[in-house]
């Protein structure tokens, strides 16, 4: 069990109500954990496998934790919603299309190309990519630019651990990611909705931030095609479209790379795409969001509630201009 001590704005373990199925999986420790109240010392822990919180029933969670936070509790979004309500235009534009069309994805062997400003470039099999990393769990909020959100228990490893293996050189200022381009496996790519393949990028500082994560699974299961199998990025303080799925190439560059949605409509989607309730999308408000499964809207939090971990990355940057 790896416990990563980050800080306050992460989903706190006493704010997480477990999903029933998931909670069943951890039933074996329930008897040990049920007697434990969530202690004050653990409230600033980002969930990475804290079994006691997950094995507690929702009511126990509510009673055990005096709610110091004025925010509504984060509850894990059910597996069904996470895997059936997806934006993944490579499999179709409708939210239900990815679940319909990504059933067997990927059906061919996978490799990841590492190139650009690094000392150790190369083409790596999936096994080579995964082998040195031990899997940990991160429960993150996901905020879509369309103003809905989820809470997802990801499995994977920190992006920084992956990057370090390839030794970026001093010219590496940005990290660029590419999704697979294969019209056979991804039928949505037969239509020019976006300039395929999908591409995203982070600054090197963003990529090395401890929150940046490579997910290979969720709810303890391997990622399904619709969620970006076999590996995807998760950057929880940015709008969902930054968390690129089904990565086949990572390139380190000295100049700011193009990104798909910025190419599509640069007035609507910026390079940074940080969650920001104060900067509206030109066509709709970003002040609030609908958490999937909830009726009333929630207020959207600055940097999706991860301000403490990431706001230093943007010190002095005009967030109205660099949205």
């Amino acid at each position: 069990m790896i416990i990563k001590t980050l800080n306050k704005s992460a989903c706190k373990e006493n704010e997480i109500t477990p999903e029933h199925v998931y909670h069943q999986r951890r039933k074996f420790i329930k008897s040990i954990a049920s007697g434990l109240a969530v202690s004050a010392a653990t409230t600033s822990i980002l969930l990475t496998g804290c079994d006691d919180a997950k094995s507690k029933s929702p009511t126990a969670t509510n009673q055990a934790s005096p709610d110091s936070s004025p925010l509504p509790k984060d509850t894990l979004t059910p597996f069904k919603d996470i895997t059936q309500y997806n934006n993944f235009y490579e499999f179709g534009l409708d939210k239900s299309d990815p679940a319909k069309h990504a059933g067997n994805f990927p059906s061919k062997p996978w490799s990841v190309t590492i190139e650009g400003e690094v000392d150790n470039p190369g083409v790596f099999t999936l096994e080579d990519i995964f082998k040195p990393h031990s899997t940990e769990e991160r429960i993150y909020r996901l905020r879509c630019v369309e103003a809905w959100s989820m809470v997802i228990p990801w499995n994977g490893f920190p992006l920084s651990d992956l990057i370090k293996r390839f030794s970026p050189n001093s010219k590496a200022k940005y990290v660029e990611f590419f999704t697979l381009y294969d019209t056979e496996q991804m039928p949505g790519q037969r239509r020019p909705h976006l300039d395929w393949p999908y591409r995203e990028a982070l600054t090197i500082a963003e990529a090395m931030n401890p929150l940046s994560f490579i997910a290979t699974g969720l709810y303890g299961k391997n990622l399904l095609g619709q969620n970006g199998a076999p590996l995807r990025l998760v950057v929880p303080w940015k709008y969902g479209f930054k968390s690129i799925k089904s990565i086949v190439k990572i390139r380190f560059t000295s100049k700011q790379p193009r990104t798909s949605w910025s190419d599509q409509a640069s007035s609507e989607y910026g390079f940074y795409a940080n969650v920001n309730p104060n900067v509206n999308h030109p066509r709709w408000s970003q002040r609030k969001e609908r958490r999937i499964g909830e009726f009333r809207k929630r207020n959207t939090l600055m940097f999706n509630g991860y301000a403490e971990e990431v706001s230093h990355l943007y010190a002095g940057l005009d967030l109205n201009k660099y949205f």
Binding site: K80, Y85, K95, S96, W148, R290, I292, G293, F295
Partner: peptide, 9 residues
Amino acid sequence: DQLGSNPIE
């Protein structure tokens, strides 16, 4: 209950 994950939308 056939309105999917985001029934309001």
